[in-house]
Amino acid sequence: MGNERSQRQTAAIIAVVTLSNHKIVSAGEAFVLEAKNEEEQQKLTLEIAKTVKGDVTQLSNGIYLILRS
């Protein structure tokens, strides 16, 4: 007890893989990649995640985030 704060893990967004119809205003330090279609978006997401050993999250609007703890 008392050390809950030090036990929290945070994830950093390494990359954002999006389509041209998505508007990304700012991604901080994350790498933003625009795919030409959904098939390429999925392929690029998996390739990047594998390379950086990251986790993938798909948002409800179709944008993929690659995270690393």
Score class of each variant (00 low, 15 high):
L19D: 09
S60C: 06
E34A: 03
E47T: 07
L67Y: 08
I63S: 02
I13T: 12
L44Y: 11
Q42Y: 04
Q42R: 11
T45K: 05
L46H: 15
Q9H: 12
Q42P: 00
D55Y: 10
R68K: 15
E38W: 13
T51K: 15
E47K: 14
G54V: 10
Q58Y: 15
S6N: 03
S20M: 01
T57R: 06
I48V: 15
V17C: 04
L59H: 09
Q42W: 03
R5H: 10
T57D: 05
Q9I: 11
M1W: 11
A15Q: 01
S20H: 04
V17S: 01
L19C: 13
L46Y: 14
V25P: 01
L44V: 15
N61Q: 07
G2H: 09
S69K: 10
G54C: 09
G2M: 12
Q58C: 13
I48Y: 14
T18H: 08
A35Q: 13
T57V: 14
V52W: 08
H22A: 13
I63G: 01
I66L: 03
E34L: 05
L67Q: 13
G2T: 07
E40S: 13
K36I: 15
L67S: 15
N61Y: 04
H22Y: 13
A35N: 14
G54R: 01
N3Y: 02
A12T: 13
L65V: 04
V25C: 03
A30K: 05
E39W: 10
N37W: 07
F31M: 13
N61C: 07
I24N: 00
